[in-house]
Design a protein around this nucleic acid. Structure first.
Lengths: 341, 341
DNA sequence: GTTTAGCACTCTCCATGTTTGAGTGCTAAT
DNA sequence: ATTAGCACTCAAACATGGAGAGTGCTAAAC
């Protein structure tokens, strides 16, 4: 069991390490925090903390660095404590979030910038995976010869469009009938559900008597093919200013992972199922390539259904309090925007 | 005046430097190329080339490195020579470009990936600046209370949508009349032109007698506000594998510039006016932050009008022949796709 | 006159010592 | 239980010294 004093020392080490990378020694701790204890005593305590697995020494005769379990303890305390970060940050955050409201069209872009610029970490935001969104209405507009523009209105306050090529030309009038059919059959279902239904219908091959319906199904199959959620990333360059990134290979690995996208999309997607803000510290990170980083992730909702995810990626020694506050509040804010519309 | 032999030596140095960074010495040149000359003679020639400003020495007793003017000479020769790169590359390029055709919706994303993965440099592609595109048709669809989805069909085979809030609710029927009005008035104009016209009309304040038209103008002003062209970047991580990027500050600077976007958008935008493939070598680069890199840029057209730009960003010692070939062909390919549709 | 061999010289790079300073662990005193 | 003192350790910074690659120059060869 961890005594109150030991815990305070652990958190002190974490504080120091947050401000500057590199092992933190006993003297520094006594100077920055007034425990009323001498360095020697602190040393003993730190030695104990190391035995318990909360701290580690990169090498003999160096200071200590918090381990992932040390951070875990810290973060758990933070979360149950509910101490939010200072008011200035919150004010600044609100000021920036307000601009989100102005033009919902670019809100992904904006939101990721807000996340990153305020935290100096990498901000990511995942638009709803198309499969998860609910179809509100569909419109088919003839575009050019053999091409139809499909406008997808979703419940999630988003519009997607896609151009579909069709083989025999169809008149706008017929297109209207088709969209009418799709709307009456499928409105209210999620895209993923529609996809499954359509595939079933088609395999049973019985509806082909009505050529319009068969055409409608063809279009559906094309439009409702599962598409990956898109992610928006920003703040890479700010992040490189942190002293942690003196190592070039780390940058490389990080960039590759982020550019690859699908690993992150997968993760965020999994997260979307659950609720609330989650923190992955170093080795806890489900993505192998990210085991040198920490992530703070949350979901944003439409009503009560989570439809997208936002998050921050930072160094393991990131300012968790700040990061959690930012992510948490931004997620809530976005949820509110979506609700009010 | 530069003799034939000297020129050959210069190009030889460029070749060597392309394959591996670091000064190239006289011995290496004689070994890799059979000039039938001894290192000593090559040294003399290189010394002459240095005097002429085509080569430079990082320090005494090191080999030579091509200067920007050296590269300029080389590239100019390439371009007038029209020797394209080998057939394998072209085949590979065509194979990848084919997939562009399949789904025009994601073609930006795809095209930038093709550019970067084939060259190992950074691929960029700029979608047409909205202002430059020509309005083909507009559709207004009622979305929610007080919200209208505006679907913009452009001549450039692209569809854009935007959600606009309007104050007094308008029925779909009226929306149809409005879109009919806009279509009849403005189809065929570029977005920028429309914007200017609308601003004029509004300032004259005389049309407000017809409230529908005034409403139409309001929507126009909102929709046709000039929006920046979007750029898609890919290949950052591959680029980092090049030995040139041992220096962390270069990476930082490059990333910042790219993430900033607007400098690049501006440049590409200026380029769009002119035609053909352009090469910026090192210090020739109009963007200060990029004076350590080279760019190969071209435009793609809809018919004869340039509507977007693509390009490659690489180290100064990039393989210009390959880069120019890739950019050139990709631009042509895209132009053809847009034409055939 | 052009080309080349030979040689002295220069400069980077790498590996190897050396020093310095921060920090610990232990022991003995408080 | 805490602390002062001291010996010990290790990384990072700095210095030293070839080794190697490459040049420039000169004098000889073609």
């Amino acid at each position: 069991m961890l005594g109150e004093r030991n815990r305070k020392v652990l958190f002190a080490v974490i504080q120091c390490y947050m401000n500057a990378p590199g092992p933190v020694g006993s003297r520094v701790v006594t100077k920055k925090f007034s425990f009323g204890l001498s360095p020697a005593t602190i040393r003993n305590i730190m030695s104990d903390l190391e035995e318990m697995g909360y701290l580690r020494q990169p090498h003999t005769s160096a200071g200590r660095i918090p381990t992932d379990s040390g951070y875990r303890l810290y973060v758990d305390t933070l979360i149950t404590g509910k101490d939010y970060v200072n008011d200035e940050l919150l004010l600044e955050l609100y000021k920036r979030l307000e601009t989100l409201n102005k033009d919902i069209n670019y809100f992904h872009d904006r939101a990721s910038k807000v996340l990153s610029s305020l935290s100096n970490y990498i901000g990511i935001i995942m638009s709803p995976k198309t499969g998860m969104t609910t179809l509100n209405k569909i419109e088919l507009l003839k575009y050019r010869k053999n091409q139809v523009a499909v406008i997808l209105f979703t419940d999630e306050a988003m519009i997607r469009n896609k151009v579909v090529s069709i083989d025999p030309e169809i008149s706008q009038k017929d297109l209207n009938r088709i969209s009418g059919y799709i709307n009456s059959e499928f409105a209210g279902f999620t895209v993923e559900e529609i996809r499954r239904i359509v595939l079933n219908e088609m395999s049973e091959e019985r509806n082909i008597c009505d050529s319009l319906i068969s055409e409608a199904l063809k279009i559906c199959r094309n439009v409702f093919s599962s598409a990956e959620g898109d992610i928006y990333v920003s703040g890479l360059s700010e992040m490189l200013d942190l002293p942690d990134f003196c190592d070039i290979d780390r940058i490389r690995l990080l960039l590759k992972t982020i550019e690859d996208k699908h690993l992150i999309v997968e993760l965020l997607d999994k997260i979307s199922a659950s609720d609330g803000t989650q923190v992955f510290i170093g080795s806890e990170n489900p993505i192998d390539e990210m085991k040198n980083f920490s992530m703070v992730i949350s979901t944003y909702n439409e009503g009560s259904k989570p439809v997208g995810a936002i998050g921050l990626i930072g160094p393991r020694r990131m300012n968790y309090l700040k990061a959690i506050s930012i992510v948490d509040m931004t997620a809530n804010y976005i949820s509110n925007i979506l609700l009010d519309r």
